[in-house]
Structure formats: structure tokens, C-alpha cells
């Protein structure tokens, strides 16, 4: 009897397990993104500093993060912290730490370039109207920066969602791992399960990420008009 691959999805609670796995991925990405945005805003402002030493350390941080594979960072924080510092972090906490560490650097660089792309006249008009430095940033520069940042922020978030598939290596079971478990559990009975399971994961990713990028596009359009 021919066993159809798609049946595997409806065995037991496989389908639900996939959604739970996706929820784990999303949760990690969204929490990390939240911290990355907050810290990245500050880091981006620090990056525009004219102090050469400050700029050097910002650059060093950014380049370090870019050179180091996220996997190495995950291992360092998850296993390294336990071995060397006796800090036993859960896989989820370690993942949020690493993704925030990475996201803050990337976000900071985006914020820096957005800040630098705002003409100097915008600052001067603000000062000429009697605003102080904080007021100029709060009412004039940051609102404009956020608008410019929206597309690249969305991009970073989706990259983060995709990168969450690495966290399985520190024991966090997310959607791709659940998929592998389902495929493997039935590898003797349903050899072509992989195609179906990965296909469904693809659609699930799309179903979740598409509204995000759609919302960002709409918001961007609304802000432009």
C-alpha cells in the first residue's frame, strides 16, 4: 500500500507540534528584536560620535559580531558560560542573549546610517526653533529615522526568524527541529515525508513572515503620505 507523505502531518498531534515549534522560533526572534531595537537605537547614536576612540570600539564590536558565526556565539554563551563562569543559562536565554548581541550591532549600524542620512538642516531647524538636543532627537530626528529604518528592520527580523533554526544545537526545539523529528520518526514507514514536512514549514514561515513585511510596507506607505 502506498503511504502518502502528506498523511504524516495529520498523525497524532504532528501539525500542532509544528506550530508550537514555529511559536518558539518567533518568540525568540521577537524578544531578541525588541531588545535589539532598544539597545541598537542607543548604540547607533553612540556610533555617530565624533570621538575616535568611541568610534573604534563601536567598529570593533560590529566587526566582531559580523565575523563570528552565530553558531560559535551560541556555543560560547550556552556551554562556555557554564564551563568557565558557572553561569548555567537555559537554551532560550542563551539564544536571546546571542541574538540581541548580534541584533544590537546590526541595528546600531542601521540606525547610524539612517541618522547620518538625515540632512544637517533638520537638526539646525530644530535648534533654531528653540529645541534642545534631546528635543531635536525626540521630535524631529528619531521619528524620521524610524521611518527610514522600517524596511531594514523588517529584513533583520526575518533574518532573525530564519537564524533561529540554529538554536537546536543548544537544545531548543524549534520548528525545523520538530520537522526533522517528524521526518525521522517515520523514515521507515513514510520515506517521502521530508518533502511534505519541509513544504509545510515553508508555507508556515511564509504565513507568519508575510503579514509582517506587508504591515511594514503599509505602515511605510502611510508614513510617507
Amino acid at each position: 500500500m502506498q503511504n502518502l507523505g502528506i498523511q504524516i502531518l495529520f498523525q497524532g498531534n504532528n501539525f500542532l507540534r509544528l506550530w508550537v515549534g514555529l511559536w518558539v522560533s518567533l518568540k525568540l526572534a521577537v524578544i531578541s528584536m525588541f531588545f535589539s531595537i532598544c539597545l541598537g537605537m542607543l548604540f547607533g547614536m553612540v556610533m555617530t560620535s565624533t570621538n575616535k576612540l568611541v568610534r573604534f570600539f563601536c567598529r570593533l564590536y560590529l566587526e566582531t559580531v559580523r565575523i563570528m558565526p552565530q553558531l560559535v556565539l551560541l556555543f560560547l554563551v550556552y556551554f562556555g558560560a557554564a564551563k568557565h563562569l558557572n553561569v548555567n543559562l537555559s537554551g532560550g536565554t542563551a539564544a536571546v542573549l546571542v541574538f540581541t548581541f548580534w541584533g544590537t550591532a546590526e541595528m546600531g549600524d542601521l540606525v547610524r546610517s539612517a541618522l547620518e542620512s538625515i540632512p544637517v538642516h533638520q537638526y539646525q531647524s530644530g535648534y533654531a526653533l528653540g529645541f534642545g538636543k534631546i528635543g531635536v532627537y525626540r521630535h524631529i530626528i528619531i521619528p524620521q529615522t524610524i521611518r527610514r529604518l522600517l524596511p531594514s528592520m523588517m529584513n533583520l527580523l526575518t533574518r532573525m526568524v530564519k537564524t533561529t533554526s540554529l538554536v537546536v544545537l543548544i537544545g531548543v526545539i524549534e520548528v525545523v527541529k520538530v520537522g526533522k523529528q517528524i521526518i525521522d520518526a517515520s523514515r521507515y514507514t513514510v520515506p517521502d515525508a521530508a518533502l511534505w514536512v519541509y513544504g509545510v514549514i515553508f508555507i508556515m514561515y511564509f504565513a507568519v513572515c508575510y503579514p509582517f513585511s506587508r504591515a511594514a510596507a503599509l505602515l511605510d506607505k502611510k508614513l510617507r503620505d
Binding site: P119, H121, Q122, Q124, S125, Y127, A128, L129, G130, I140, Q144
Partner: peptide
């Protein structure tokens, strides 16, 4: 600065 207003060459509206 509030007492001394200024308008610039470039269109500097927000």
C-alpha cells in the same frame, strides 16, 4: 533662540 527666528535656504520643513 525662540526670540530670534530663522528661515534657511533649503526647504527645512520636517
Amino acid at each position: 533662540r525662540q526670540k530670534i527666528g530663522m528661515v534657511f535656504q533649503s526647504y527645512d520643513l520636517f
